[in-house]
Design a protein around this nucleic acid. Sequence first.
DNA 1: TATAGTGCTATACAGATGTATAGTTAATAT
DNA 2: ATATTAACTATACATCTGTATAGCACTATA
Lengths: 130, 130
Amino acid sequence: MDSRYSDIMKCDRGLIMALTDTLNVVSGKWKLAVVCTLLSGKKRFTDIQRAITDITPRMVSKELKELEVNGVVRRNVINSTPVLIEYELTPSGEQLYEVIQKMVEWGLQHREITLNGMEERKADEVIISG
Amino acid sequence: MDSRYSDIMKCDRGLIMALTDTLNVVSGKWKLAVVCTLLSGKKRFTDIQRAITDITPRMVSKELKELEVNGVVRRNVINSTPVLIEYELTPSGEQLYEVIQKMVEWGLQHREITLNGMEERKADEVIISG
DNA sequence: TATAGTGCTATACAGATGTATAGTTAATAT
DNA sequence: ATATTAACTATACATCTGTATAGCACTATA
């Protein structure tokens, strides 16, 4: 995780770390699913499980724990009977929305570009002379 | 890969697909490293390998192939002796810069927020009454 | 007392992902 | 003739990620 992004970013090592941080939070099959469900407000364990239909409780637990350690999610124990536990995004977690938005934008553009490109090109290997 | 992001995005299934597309391109240990090295212009196999110091040729090959299939990278065979092969970003691949930029931004903000937060809070489990 | 719900954890496993090491082909350089 | 460079590929292995299944401790309700 050191000198990989050297080419564009050789000037600033901090940027590489920042990118790596974000990637670590974002990657994993259920991370963004959990963040997305929490974007609409605080939720309890089983609410999250229900919102992400095909996730197992083990994965809910694991992903929430990792997100908490990374400062994206906060776990609130509500002192009532029975004890309830609520999960919510930290301010930092909420700001992830902007990253998600850009990713959605790119995905949409990319889909259009590649679909149009399909008609123009015929081979998937372009040979030019040099 | 279906109904996971239902909570914010239940209205538009296309957005979910777009997000998933982007995640598929972005995830994997070396994907963005390769994209980053290509942001500064077309490069050959061994140039990429050298730029990303600790990657093996097998991984260079694999990641380039996947990026090519996903329409992010184009492979140009230069008809010379010896045959050379150049890799470059497609227009779509270049636009990934915006996603990367947002990810770097978030990473930097996040780092600052969590470092400040460390001093204010003492426990990592906050108990409130309800 | 029995059953169901909440918020998890444990164990074992399967599959995906990445690594290490070596080898191939073909051309130029010494 | 031998070494070196370029652009890979093959094999085997290790590690990481996610799944399946089960269970626990507690509380509320019938």
